[in-house]
Simulated scan of single mutants.
Amino acid sequence: MLFLVVSLFLFGALLGTAGHVPVPVTVLGGIAITAWLAVFFWRERRKSGVKGASR
Rank of each mutant, 00 (worst) to 15 (best):
P22N: 11
L28G: 01
V39K: 15
R55H: 03
G16N: 04
G16T: 01
T26Q: 03
T26C: 03
S54W: 15
P22F: 13
T26M: 02
F11L: 15
V5M: 08
T34G: 11
T26D: 00
A35D: 01
R45M: 09
F40S: 08
L14G: 04
F3Y: 12
G30M: 13
I31N: 02
V21N: 06
V21C: 07
A38F: 12
G52A: 09
P24E: 11
I31H: 05
L4H: 04
S54L: 13
V6K: 10
H20Y: 08
A13N: 04
W42K: 10
W36A: 12
L14C: 09
I31T: 09
L28Q: 07
V50H: 05
T34K: 00
G49T: 06
A32G: 11
G19I: 05
L15C: 02
T17H: 09
F11C: 14
R43Q: 12
M1S: 09
F40G: 00
R55K: 08
R45S: 10
V23I: 15
R43P: 04
L8N: 00
F11I: 14
L37G: 01
V21H: 10
K51M: 11
W42M: 10
T34C: 09
A35P: 03
G49S: 00
S48Y: 11
W42S: 07
W36E: 12
G29H: 02
A32I: 06
L14Q: 06
G49R: 03
A18Q: 05
V5R: 03
V5P: 01
I31E: 04
L28N: 04
L2C: 08
F9L: 15
A13M: 05
V50I: 09
W42N: 07
A38H: 10
I33N: 06
G16H: 05
G30N: 12
W36L: 14
I33F: 13
L4S: 02
G12N: 01
V21T: 11
L8F: 08
R55N: 00
G19A: 15
K47R: 07
L15F: 08
L10Q: 09
V5S: 07
G19E: 07
L14S: 03
V39E: 13
R43Y: 09
R55C: 00
T17N: 07
A35Y: 14
F3W: 15
